[in-house]
């Protein structure tokens, strides 16, 4: 897979979700995630109801449920950090791990299931946002929302130079592989330790070169008048219909959270 395919999550489609203005989508996505996080422990009804508008947007986006589902797996490793809670929460013992002797409590399982459900639903919302909005539009929206310029600039440059540095790493790996030859009848390849040292050298030299590049890039930016802010072209007017749609989406979540507490 090409590097751009791994990092750039935008997926070009034509759908109402894609067409919606990022200045409506970004705050709506954040607000929705905030609403999801307000779900009480083991409130399965709330989680289920919160999933309905999200599912509707998944279908409206024409990204395909499979595509969205696959992308949510990316966040899985982070979510797994919650799993130890199964064993640390006090409560009634449900089962005991053989060998280790750790006991899982019903309270713990409930807590972890809630965390998994909430995180996964939040990740779906985030995946929807980044798959249906080009990165630069998200950044523009963040700046428009008055997010501190240093944060926006950091995100922007991370995004911009990730590709440059990634491709640099890829070229170095190619150059190394080109010189990784074997002679017939010779046990080559070196020891694990030696190969690890080579990999370390490569990482080090990539770091030094990135640092040097950043100095050159910064000098070139200053030469063009950069003073710390990324200046976007003037924003086009924000259509009211987009705001209404985004607000309706968030309103669903707020109503669910109020409704289940009634």
């Amino acid at each position: 897979m090409s590097l751009a395919g791994v990092v750039d999550r935008y997926s070009e489609r034509d759908s109402p979700v894609h067409r919606a203005d990022a200045r409506a989508k970004v705050p709506a996505a954040f607000a929705y995630i905030l609403a999801i996080s307000a779900t009480r422990e083991a409130d399965w009804a709330a989680l289920g109801l919160l999933a309905v508008p999200v599912l509707a947007v998944v279908f409206a986006s024409r990204l395909g449920p499979w595509f969205v589902l696959r992308r949510t797996f990316l966040a899985l490793p982070f979510v797994l950090a919650a799993v130890p809670l199964v064993f640390t929460r006090p409560g009634e013992t449900v089962f005991t791990l053989p060998l280790l002797g750790w006991t899982a409590s019903d309270e713990g399982i409930r807590a972890v299931a809630t965390i998994l459900g909430k995180s996964w639903l939040s990740v779906v919302v985030a995946v929807l946002l980044v798959s249906a909005t080009p990165m630069v539009e998200i950044l523009r929206a963040l700046r428009w929302l008055r997010l501190p310029r240093i944060l926006v600039a950091t995100i922007f440059f991370t995004y911009r130079y990730f590709f440059v540095i990634g491709e640099e790493a890829q070229r170095m790996l190619r150059a190394r592989d080109s010189r990784s030859a074997r002679l017939p009848g010779q046990r080559g390849g070196g020891t694990v330790l030696w190969r690890a040292r080579i990999a370390g050298h490569m990482a080090g030299s990539l770091f030094v070169r990135s640092l040097e590049r950043s100095e050159r890039v910064y000098a070139a930016m200053q030469a063009r008048g950069y003073r710390g802010d990324h200046i976007f072209l003037a924003d086009p007017p924000l259509p009211a219909a987009h705001l209404v749609g985004a607000s309706a989406f968030v309103a669903c979540a707020v109503l669910v959270q109020i409704g289940v507490r009634w």
């Binding site: 150059a175 592989d177 990784s180 030859a181 490569m202 080090g204 070169r209």
Partner: peptide, 21 residues
């Protein structure tokens, strides 16, 4: 492996090729 022992490749950017201290 043995083809790479026959074909040496010089990359256009020497920085890609040189990684050791």
């Amino acid at each position: 492996g043995s083809i790479r022992a026959k074909v040496g490749l010089l990359f256009s950017n020497p920085d890609d090729q040189l990684f050791s201290p």
